[in-house]
Each structure stands twice: as structure tokens, then as C-alpha cells.
């Protein structure tokens, strides 16, 4: 596993970029090798599938240039696999930058891809998917095949998204990966901050810190407000079990716990990517690669 992070970094918002290859898998020329490239507003993800089964993936920060980020993250996912671009039979681009994925044969929205990917990661019993991305939140309802039946997306405001969390990590000087744990480290849950707008919430947080609130309390109050906002979106789309969370914020235990609490439902546990499991952050890229396989086969038939 390759990693890119300076241990003594003072960039608290910076999360870990990494790549993984399933070592026990191999590939032959006749295999259907497909890729999904999910260029999000904050993170870019790429996944390689062999005959519809996961082989490798990579996650990195999206740069200012979408096509470049797409190329970089796909290269990252193929690192140490002997694969090259020509071996990929079909590539689907998704995410905010989906139309700017140069090697993609087709673009599909991240909404369809996350539902499909969640279906792959957790199985056919998943009905509701909450994808908390870098810049937006989507509540998706799907059927047993991972096909979208309805969805809702927040407006252009970044409240409760990954970007908002990064701003709070910086403000409170807590590494982004620790933010969930820290927010749960309170004796009593404080009332949520009243304003969900990131800019105003930041002002409110500074006020609370001045009043003598601990970092943990402030973070708990912000996280709770975000969890309520996300839960409202889930309720509006209609919560049906099983319920899962994808996207970067699925790794934020503070968010997950509070959503479960507000909605009075348990999410299906996320596989632990640090111990070799799949990463819910790549659900969109997995979905895209699965669509790539389906589209490749469809084209072969015609």
C-alpha cells in the first residue's frame, strides 16, 4: 500500500491518499477489465474490475484540473499491476468532473453509480444510500439490483459536506481522520449549532470557543447539526432498510453515529479499508466500473 502523508503535517484538513491492489487476483488478456473514474469536487477515485470483481483502486485529492486528476488517479489505481490504459476494455467517468474524464467511453452520474456501488459492497438488501461527498449530499433510494428509484440532492450550499468538515478540522486543529472520534468524546451531547451554513457555523463555533466550550463540544455541536441536515434529506427521500452511508464522510464516526441516532436506525457496518476491506468512499467508482462492464457486454452483442 502506498501512502502520501507527512506525519507531522499541520494541514489538519489533509486526508490520506492511498492505493491498493488485491494481490491474490490475477488477470489474463481475455478477461473483461473495466474501470470507473469518479472525479469528485474534493477527492478523485478510480477502481479497476476484472470480470466484474474488484482488483485495485486508488484515492487522491482532486486538483484544479479535472482531466489531469482523472488521468493521475487512474494511473495511481493501476500502479504495480502491469496494467496499462490499453488493457481497459471500457471506462466510465462519474462525479462532478465526469464529462472531463479523457479516457472515458461514457459518463454516468454519481447518483446512479453510488447506488450500484453500494449494491456491490453491501449486497442486494440495500434500499437507501446516503452519499456524503466533498461538496454535496445525496439521498438515494434503490431497488435490489442497485437501480435508482428516487433521489434527492442538497442545494449548492456546502454545509455538512466533506469540504465543511475540512474547514472545521483546520479551525479546531484536529486531523480530519480523528474528527469523528473527537466529536464523540463528550459526556453530554450539546445542542446543535443553529446555523448549517459553513461560513456562519464557523463564526458561531468561534463564539462558542470564546465562551469556554471545549473543542470536543464545539465539534459535537457542529457534527450534530450536519447529521440532522443529512437525516432530513434521507427522511424526505423515504428511509427504507437496509441503510448505508457512502462517500468520504462514511469514515466519520461522529456523523454516522449521530445519523443513526436521529433516524433511529442502524447503518450496515462499513467494511474496514484499513484492514483490507472495501472503502465506501469508492462506491461511486465501483458503480461506474460495473456500468462499464455492462456497457461493454451490451456493445459486444450489438
Amino acid at each position: 500500500m502506498s501512502e502520501t502523508k507527512n506525519k507531522d503535517s499541520t494541514e489538519f484538513w489533509r486526508w490520506q491518499e492511498y492505493q491498493r491492489v488485491i494481490k491474490e487476483k490475477t488477470w489474463k488478456d481475455k478477461d473483461i477489465i473495466t474501470a470507473g473514474v469518479d472525479v469528485g469536487s474534493v477527492g478523485s477515485k478510480a477502481t479497476i474490475l476484472i470480470n466484474g470483481e474488484i482488483y485495485s483502486w486508488g484515492i487522491m485529492r482532486t486538483g484544479s484540473n479535472s482531466p489531469e486528476s482523472a488521468i493521475k488517479v487512474l494511473d495511481f489505481a493501476m500502479k504495480g499491476t502491469d496494467l496499462c490504459l490499453d488493457d481497459l476494455k471500457y471506462v466510465v467517468g462519474t462525479g462532478y468532473g465526469r464529462v472531463n474524464v479523457p479516457m472515458a467511453n461514457k459518463a454516468i452520474t454519481e447518483i446512479a453509480c453510488h447506488a450500484k456501488g453500494a449494491n456491490y459492497i453491501w449486497g442486494s438488501k440495500v434500499r437507501t444510500v446516503l452519499d456524503v461527498g466533498g461538496q454535496d449530499i445525496k439521498a438515494i433510494h434503490c431497488d435490489e439490483t442497485g437501480r435508482v428509484t428516487s433521489f434527492l440532492m442538497n442545494d449548492k450550499c456546502a454545509a455538512g459536506t466533506g469540504r465543511g468538515m475540512e474547514i472545521f478540522a483546520d479551525l479546531l486543529q484536529i486531523p480530519i481522520e480523528k474528527i469523528g472520534e473527537v466529536s464523540l468524546n463528550v459526556d453530554k451531547e450539546p445542542p446543535p449549532v443553529s446555523c448549517t451554513c459553513v461560513a456562519f457555523a464557523k463564526t458561531e463555533a468561534v463564539g462558542l470557543l470564546r465562551k469556554g466550550w471545549s473543542k470536543e463540544m464545539v465539534l459535537a455541536a457542529y457534527t450534530r447539526a450536519m447529521a440532522i441536515r443529512m437525516s432530513n434529506l434521507v427522511n424526505r427521500v423515504g428511509l427504507e432498510k437496509e441503510f448505508v452511508i457512502t462517500g468520504g464522510q462514511s469514515k466519520n464516526a461522529g456523523i454516522v453515529k449521530r445519523i443513526e441516532n436521529v433516524l433511529n436506525v442502524e447503518t450496515l457496518p462499513s467494511p474496514n479499508w484499513e484492514t483490507g476491506g472495501l472503502d465506501p468512499m469508492i462506491a461511486g467508482a465501483i458503480g461506474a466500473a460495473l456500468f462499464a462492464k455492462a456497457l461493454y457486454l451490451k456493445n459486444q452483442k450489438n
Binding site: 452520474t109 454519481e110 446512479a112 437501480r147 440532492m153 442545494d155
Partner: peptide
């Protein structure tokens, strides 16, 4: 907000296409 709306509209149309086609 055209970029964000495009995602919403396309996801909706994908959903309709999937009902017809996949």
C-alpha cells in the same frame, strides 16, 4: 448552479432510461 443541476437532471433521466431499457 448549472453544473449541479446537470447532475440532478441527468440522474433523473438515467433513472427514467433504466426503467425503459436496462
Amino acid at each position: 448552479d448549472v453544473g449541479q443541476m446537470k447532475t440532478r437532471v441527468e440522474a433523473f433521466l438515467e433513472m427514467l432510461t433504466a426503467r425503459i431499457d436496462f
